[in-house]
Design a protein around this nucleic acid. Sequence first.
DNA 1: CTGTATCCGTGCCGATACTG
DNA 2: CAGTATCGGCACGGATACAG
Lengths: 133, 133
Amino acid sequence: MDKKAPAGNPSRPNPLPGCPMAAAFAAIGGKWKLTLLYWLAHGETHFAGLRRRAAPITPKVLAEQLRELEADGLVERVETGPVPAPVVYRLTPYGTTVLPVVEGVRVWGEAHLRRTQGEASPAVPMSCADMIA
Amino acid sequence: MDKKAPAGNPSRPNPLPGCPMAAAFAAIGGKWKLTLLYWLAHGETHFAGLRRRAAPITPKVLAEQLRELEADGLVERVETGPVPAPVVYRLTPYGTTVLPVVEGVRVWGEAHLRRTQGEASPAVPMSCADMIA
DNA sequence: CTGTATCCGTGCCGATACTG
DNA sequence: CAGTATCGGCACGGATACAG
């Protein structure tokens, strides 16, 4: 029974074995993963915290994505309390290595946003803000 | 405004309006888009060239992704000949702005590959190689 | 050579409800 | 609070064949 998978049990299989792009995509290509990593870069949070930040994500999908990120060694799940179990999610040291990528995507996305929508975008309309650790 | 930037006809709608991540993902989040941009960074190619490079992509999907990249102003389609129509695809100036992101993803993907598979990956097994312009 | 048409499988994601 | 269960849908991506 697979309990934890430190970098030997990738959540998603690489469709193109040996291709760096595909490998990266398998790890951080989920719809919400970059956003989750982005918010986790701000500091550890718990489940509900991520739920609030990460827009209209549903608990099921959030749990899935978190478990995949965990399986890829990017995110660490820490149980801080015994009973009410305020679990805390945080980036692993390895997880911090993706932050430049996350930031790169975010910055480019911002520029792209301004390009496509011009000035039509207010500041932080939904949930994603700017800044990064 | 912009001389030839479509930039008003995004191929994929942004599911989270105003979110840079989502915007970026809508533009370059396609399964093959990063790979295509990567190869296009090596120089202009034609349809068949991309087909060969981009692994087992099917013509339909290739055409789709290319049209989306074109709609987002990242890729330019140039017809070089009249009849046999050797069309050439190339990055637009704006398209080159994503190259850092592409490279970042690729580099991280390589590291991730080595992390997950150790030394089990031969050199360029399928189609993706290394290097970039 | 450069695509398009048609059909289809399934992976990804979502809503709601329920449990420790 | 932190998740899991179940169900479903739809879009994304794919295969094959055909056309300009």
